[in-house]
């Protein structure tokens, strides 16, 4: 464990807690993409399949349970909670996210480190996580009025992957055999997708005006 990875995990934890807090306290999910949340639930479900077979550390297992629990409860809130579901703008959140799942699955069947069931699904979860934010970014551009909690959620989510890139550089420099191109490229693509959001987020923060993404 290094400081970059810890910072990344804490930022990731903060992003899901910010979202859960928003949905639970104001009983609204306006501006949140259910598609992105469903993709994240699939990402965690396929990434943490080894939670029962391989134990690494208390921290590792605890965080996996928190991420699984939070992502599925956010989906549950947005789909089934009587008050929250009414605030979900279904007409705007129209990204065909299943078109993201299939190519990621095919790519995982083609490019992976080992051709085993767990490894292919784990690789699939990496590819899917890289693109899971797309429905949310599209929704933000459509709804234009980004309330600061949703903006913070996306910002923290992008920041977590940015910290992970620093973690991979650190581990590559300090651990001789630590080379994982698939993880690195997927993580880099993911972080790049946030790049323009970060640019507009900082612009709005610097000029102290409402965050507006270009149409």
């Amino acid at each position: 464990m290094n400081i970059f990875r810890l910072a990344g995990d804490m930022t990731h934890l903060a992003s899901v807690l910010v979202l859960l807090l928003k949905i639970h306290t104001i009983k609204s999910c306006a501006g949140v993409s259910l598609k992105t949340q469903e993709l994240y639930a699939i990402v965690f479900a396929t990434r943490y399949l080894d939670i029962f077979t391989s134990f690494y550390s208390i921290y590792n297992t605890l965080m996996k349970l928190i991420f699984l629990g939070s992502s599925f409860s956010i989906v549950w809130y947005m789909r089934y909670h009587k008050t929250v579901r009414r605030t979900y703008d279904r007409e705007q959140d129209t990204f065909r996210h299943w078109f993201l799942v299939l190519p990621c699955l095919l790519l995982a069947l083609l490019i992976h480190e080992k051709f085993t069931f767990l490894e292919v699904l784990w690789t699939f979860s990496l590819y899917l996580e890289a693109v899971a934010i797309l429905p949310q970014l599209v929704l933000l551009q459509r709804t234009r009025n980004i309330d600061n909690l949703t903006g913070q959620y996306v910002f923290l989510l992008g920041g977590y992957r940015g910290f992970y890139i620093l973690n991979w550089i650190y581990r590559y420099l300090t651990e001789p055999h630590f080379v994982h191109w698939i993880t690195w490229i997927a993580g880099l693509v993911q972080t790049l997708l946030y790049a323009d959001f970060f640019y507009y987020y900082f612009q709005s923060w610097k000029n102290n005006k409402k965050l507006q993404l270009p149409a």
Partner: peptide, 10 residues
């Protein structure tokens, strides 16, 4: 392999 593996990452 676990040491150098990313499986210890979330």
């Amino acid at each position: 392999k676990l040491v150098g593996d990313t499986k210890d990452e979330l």
